[in-house]
Write a protein that binds this DNA or RNA. Structure first.
Lengths: 216, 216, 216, 216
DNA sequence: GATGAATGAGGATTCATTCAT
DNA sequence: TATGAATGAATCCTCATTCAT
């Protein structure tokens, strides 16, 4: 609050306030989106949750969609910064079960801490048509999965790899729903373990060159 | 539901007319829900799609939610009637890959023919809190999965079985999204095959006592 | 109001009600447009003036602009029906002063009775850029003026005729403002007379081949 | 307004700065009013156009209306200073056609250079009720016209003179609309010439005592 | 002064639902 | 039964204006 006079305090202050407001609004949006889903959330409700007037909200975001987009981007960055090391080369060298731990655990942790993330991924709730807004979020994560798969199953042709990545990701999302729905505690832990088992069983044959890749 | 033959036809007519209206409205609702998602669908739009006035719609359904519920129930019944034999004892005796074919294929077929089904399951899009309306739908299907799992892995303790069923079902839903998003044709077929592979790899160890259950 | 039972009364009633509502809404819009101008008039205010809810207004008009358009068209039709005979061949045969009486008087009368007309012509208040919505209204009237001028000054080249028509019409509009601003009574009458004098002096030389056309 | 030379420069600076701000804001307002009309112009848009914050705008003007008023007054002064000599006695001695040139040409030039002027005269677009804000502007110009007419037609009784002045001015405004709407170049020039013809034909009989003043 | 964040009432428009016919 | 007119609260968003810094 007191001005440090050897620096540029005015703009700093202003921007700091603006940033705080934005964060506050995004947090409020996260709460409201979680509670009602994106479509059913109103900008007025978000403003109310943030204890600001609707006008204030619109000073920072041009419309509802922009809030979701910004929220998604922030979450993505946050996730990368917090758990980005999951995809470092060292981890890629791990055996699959360990890699799954390294990738899935922080991901789940992050989603437990930020349940909006899933809410945004479920997006505009229209199946078979993913809203552009959430596309980026989705695409970015999918790319990660593809990388890992490419590393583990280098022999897999591109289209197959894409399909496996899609399926892996879809499965993970489905499992994540379950994890978030489970009450925190042993039940949730067991669900997490089960999800890892599922992914492991699915992906192990891809990397296991000796074994017949698929029993079909 | 079963037809009593040889009785008073007049009231039957009335009911028949009502039934036709209801079917018409539900079909319209299905279209609209598919196009826009449940939340973004308006009852006026449904009435319009059904070539009926809003007042008429409310003569058959007390509110929007009731439409979704009834639609879900009908779809469930339809699914049971059309593909209920998937769960007959004969199928339960099949080896797992065959059972998967027997269960998954009609299920996917049904969902391709009735994409609302998935739309309703995604429900009110709020993760971690399944709307009561779609609960029944969900629960009913889950029960089926549990039965099959109970049959295939009789030694599995109850809680584990529930968890496996949940996970299986969640995975199936996730895969179904992918299938419906894929363009009809070879791509969709490949996605279906992949989904079955996934399920097979997940479930096979449960039933395959001789084999090492899990590579972990 | 009473039902003639040998005809189709139901639809008639409905349509009649709708028509009445539309008329009521347009009348309300006329009042509000007159009082505040188009831009500053709110649909809510129009609905309030019509003693209906905003929703009702939107059952008959898709948006504010549509109200202005419909209002303009109705006024135009009304004007044509009420005073369309001003342009009949008999009048065209009159000497210019009589023609001016025949054309200007009913026009002014109509505008006194329907002051919205002018409000709509002033349109979206942006000079040099006439809103499309009111264009039709404007164009239609202008065409009439051109016809008369073409008849009175057949030797006038096309572009000149257009210019004269534009100027005549602009002048008339300007004079109309004055007329409407004047308090009803002798002052208004004098203003009307003055406007006719103006128009006569402007147009007389065009038709009066014998006289020296213009002192310039 | 006139500069007192050789006095304290400090306060002058401040005022100078304030003056610059005001000029900047008024110029911005002019642009915005021209583009959207008065009603549809927002103070925020004006501030933005002036590259200034809304707060700054309100430091110089108490409200939106005050901006229009001040703008109108400045334009009036500017017009007087730039073209005020149009009304000097020498011009009044000219024959009417020459006087029209002397008065109309600079007026049109000024309006072409400052199209807001017309926008403000059209004012709040409500016909038959001239907003007080623009009243002054209007009245001032009208007074000039009255003077000229009084000079040219000294025998005209007061009320008639007022009416003629009103009509002349209204006509001029209408013609000005046309002029500004015409594309710069020969078309605009022709429109200007036509407007002068119109005014000449209207006013000539007033001054031309020999001729029968009005054919009515 | 200058800033720009903040306000909250108000604007256009929609929607679930009701009601008179 | 069926209609569609009617409702009014709620939606998204804007704007004139104020205020703390």
């Amino acid at each position: 609050m007191s001005e440090d006079r050897s620096e540029e305090p005015k703009p700093r202050r202003r921007q700091a306030r603006g940033e705080r407001r934005i964060a506050q609004l995004l947090q409020a949006a996260a709460n409201v989106f979680c509670a009602n889903g994106y479509t059913a959330s109103s900008t007025n409700a978000i403003a109310r949750e943030a204890h600001v007037s609707p006008g204030t909200l619109y000073q920072y975001f041009p419309n509802k969609e922009a809030i979701a987009i910004e929220l998604g981007e922030r979450l993505l960055h946050e996730m990368r910064e917090a758990h980005g090391q999951a995809f470092v080369p060292e981890n890629l060298a791990l055996p699959l079960p360990r890699l799954l731990d390294a990738v899935v655990d922080p991901m789940i942790e992050f989603n437990c801490a930020n349940p909006v993330f899933l809410a945004l991924m479920h997006g505009s709730e229209v199946p078979g048509r993913i809203a552009e807004e959430h596309d980026a979020l989705h695409a970015s994560l999918l790319a990660r999965v593809q990388e890992v798969i490419a590393h583990y199953a280098p022999g897999l042709p591109g289209p197959d790899r894409a399909r496996v990545a899609d399926m892996t990701f879809a499965t993970f999302k489905g499992g994540l729903d379950l994890v978030l729905a489970a009450p925190e505690g042993p039940e949730r832990d067991a669900t997490i373990a089960e999800l890892k088992t599922l992914l492991l069983r699915y992906l192990a044959p891809l990397t296991d060159e000796a074994a017949p890749a698929s029993p079909r």
